[in-house]
């Protein structure tokens, strides 16, 4: 299997005032193309830090991180931006839609800067929001906003989707719908899915589960028979 990411000895240290905090201790990790990887851990375990490093939003303090043949750790600010633009789709806990743009425009804002994007309207249809295209974020429910965010992330045809607690702010039923959509993107478009959660139940839909604690990977388990979101309960 092709490794999309390979991290070796990845470290991220923050300085909180005069205290040094190791958010991520020496971590080795490979992310395979096309897989669904769920990173599981309590808050403060370093999972968000890891995701931000993978997504090119942050730089490691030490270690090497490759995306395919590109050494991400060697890229400058502008190159990192281009990397995010071409290869990464983000989905956040709080959606982060642009409030002044409609649903369709929020998707199009991503396709506008992409090389070979999907059609924005089709992407909205993919998340079942075709009829809400002209609505502003303030006119959409949380679940709808998150689906727009997914459509936006997917629309630029990224190599992977990095999701930080995508269901964290949603109720159970809405959360399931969102997971369903993420899974469909992974299966139908072949987009690698990296998903952070502290909800252990969600791990059941993963190909692999990475458990983290206190800035360290404590366990990686392979899941021979990942479940569909509809089969998951929490």
């Amino acid at each position: 299997m092709e490794a999309l990411f390979s991290a070796r000895g990845l470290v991220r240290t923050f300085f909180m005032g005069e205290v040094e905090v190791q958010a991520l201790k020496a971590t080795d990790l490979d992310v395979w193309a096309g897989e669904t990887l769920v990173i599981l851990g309590p808050s403060g375990s370093g999972k968000s830090t890891l995701l931000q490093l993978l997504g090119g939003m942050d730089r490691p303090t030490a270690g090497m991180l490759h995306f395919r043949d590109t050494e991400l750790t060697a890229l400058n600010e502008r190159e990192l931006t281009l990397f995010r633009r071409r290869h990464v789709g983000f989905v956040f806990q709080f959606y982060n839609l642009i409030p002044s743009l409609t649903a369709l425009e929020n998707v199009a804002v991503a396709t506008e800067i992409a090389k070979k994007p999907h059609d924005s309207a089709e992407m909205l249809a993919l998340v079942d929001l075709a009829e809400r295209a002209g609505h502003f974020p303030s006119q959409l429910s949380g679940g709808e906003q998150q689906r727009v965010a997914i459509a936006r992330a997917v629309a630029k045809a990224p190599d992977m989707l990095l999701c930080d607690e995508p269901t964290g702010a949603l109720d159970y039923r809405t959360g399931l719908t969102v997971l369903e959509i993420l899974r469909r993107v992974n299966r139908e478009l072949g987009t690698t899915l990296v998903l952070i959660t502290h909800n252990a139940a969600i791990a059941d839909m993963a190909d692999r589960v990475l458990r983290m604690q206190s800035g360290q990977v404590v366990e990686i388990t392979e899941n021979a028979t990942p479940k569909g979101p509809s089969e998951i309960t929490w």
Binding site: G55, R78, T81, R84, R85, V88, N96, I98, S100, I113
Partner: peptide, 16 residues
């Protein structure tokens, strides 16, 4: 700030 940061994460450059 949040909105503009979102754009940066989406891959917009500082200049954009």
């Amino acid at each position: 700030a949040r909105e503009l940061a979102s754009l940066r994460v989406l891959g917009f450059t500082t200049a954009e």
